[in-house]
Design a protein around this nucleic acid. Structure first.
Lengths: 251, 251
DNA sequence: GAACGGCGTTCGGCATTGTCGAACGCTCAG
DNA sequence: CTGAGCGTTCGACAATGCCGAACGCCGTTC
């Protein structure tokens, strides 16, 4: 890409690679994957290490992500307007619905969870902030896809028997979302679980994120295997409230 | 610094700057602070934006941190061995002590919180993972300082009347930590709050982190205004257990 | 309403900068 | 003992990204 700094793009590629693969990676693997000379890769890694973005295991010599990224990541959360405006409305939504609440945005063709409120009657749950979820198999993702010009990924990965993997079927589902103003997902990512989501609009009515609840099918759905209208109402109310806070009240 | 990639160091400096200042920053401010030409800064920022590390506010033109950093930060948590080994022992420590538990490492002259367990009888508390705390005014920080060759910062910021600001006094406190094998902090960062911490040793007996509890003084300390020996015991037990898991059992 | 100052952005020429590839020391396996 | 693999160092080349001036835009000022 012209006009961009080559070495920084390479450094970012290395970081993404380290974030993707589980555990540590060797210099050789990285260099080969990115088609760089070992010397070049080493220079970039040394710099990244120097600024704390990667660490090197002293015994194996392999590289992994560094601690400085953790602080940058949480700083992003502090800054993020979508998140900070959402927090006030996410807690009430969790309380009214009795379910876990998540707020997401699009990042690199997936859903990035920027906020997560545990289900009120809280057994042990893990915090999902920072997690990436598939666009086509989550309620948050469907909503984000429906209001985005961005096309869904060509390859629709299958997670369960109910996952929507046909592009045509997905297009129909997205049209449905646009008509209804909200979206759902029932056992399409994980068996026994379902979710409901609605769009959050920012400045100028643009959809900048989605908010939704998720939980066990038996709690999310009625006897006809469809999302509880009551829950849908709660979610849409919350989405509208956040949108109003963000200045996206129009429409 | 020779042998490192200049543009990457500059990019990292920009990210750190965006993380430090609250909210968004303008191109001019950034360029001036880092003593770079506007054109150069713009090129770096464009690249960082392209890889998702920064975002630009469309209306004001100002820059802020980007969403990709959030995912990198949480990926760091998944990888981090200190954290993953600690989790199993942090929950029991919180249960036994009835207090909030935090685990920290050193990052850029401060304490980086890599894990946080809420106090069991949980009123609303905010997750502190990713936060940076001062070294000289926290129990975690004192422990980390005591076993590090790294010198404490020249400037010891004062937070309360009890904050240790004299280098000599701090050196004595650190010596005390080394003798006792644990450290404490009583109303040195926040009035009414106290903390106890002990070192976590990794490969070869090297101190790689610290674990501790924190809470209100009346719960942490006895009638003589000193940390409860019972709590100290719990913390040291947990620190030893994590160290054993990390292979730092020797010594 | 014209002039100004500030913003983010673009562009071309120069030389600084980072890249490359080969060679090095090391550890481990055979 | 030999070989393959690792991360690391180094020097020479030229591609790379830096700089600084100029641009277009917006809001303010007088």
């Amino acid at each position: 890409m012209p006009g961009t700094v080559q070495s920084i793009e390479r450094a970012a590629a290395i970081l993404r690679m380290l974030a993707g693969g589980t555990g540590r990676l060797g210099l050789g693997e990285i260099a080969k994957s990115l088609d760089l000379a070992k010397g070049t890769t080493h220079g970039i890694l040394r710099t990244l290490q120097h600024v704390g973005f990667v660490e090197q295991d002293r015994v194996s010599g392999r590289y992994q992500l560094g601690a400085a990224l953790l602080h940058l990541g949480t700083s992003y959360l502090d800054i993020n307007e979508l998140r900070s405006r959402s927090i006030n409305w996410a807690d009430p939504l969790a309380a009214r619905s009795g379910e876990a609440v998540r707020i997401g945005t699009v990042l690199e063709g997936r859903v990035l969870v920027v906020h997560h409120v545990f289900r009120p009657d809280d057994t042990f749950q893990t915090l999902e902030v920072g997690t990436l979820l598939p666009l086509h198999a989550t309620a948050l993702g469907k909503v984000l896809l429906a209001y985005r010009s961005a096309l869904p990924p060509a390859e629709l990965e299958r997670f369960t028997r109910r996952t929507v993997v046909s592009p045509r079927e997905l297009a129909a589902a997205l049209e449905q979302v646009r008509l209804a103003g909200w979206g759902a997902e029932i056992e399409e990512l994980t068996l026994g679980e379902a979710a409901i989501a609605a769009p959050i609009r920012g400045y100028g009515g643009l959809v900048v994120g989605a908010i939704g609840v998720s939980g066990l099918v038996e709690r999310m759905c009625d006897t006809r295997y469809r999302p509880h209208p009551r829950l849908v109402g709660y979610v849409r109310d919350a989405a509208r409230a956040v949108s109003r806070d963000l200045g996206g009240a129009r429409r």
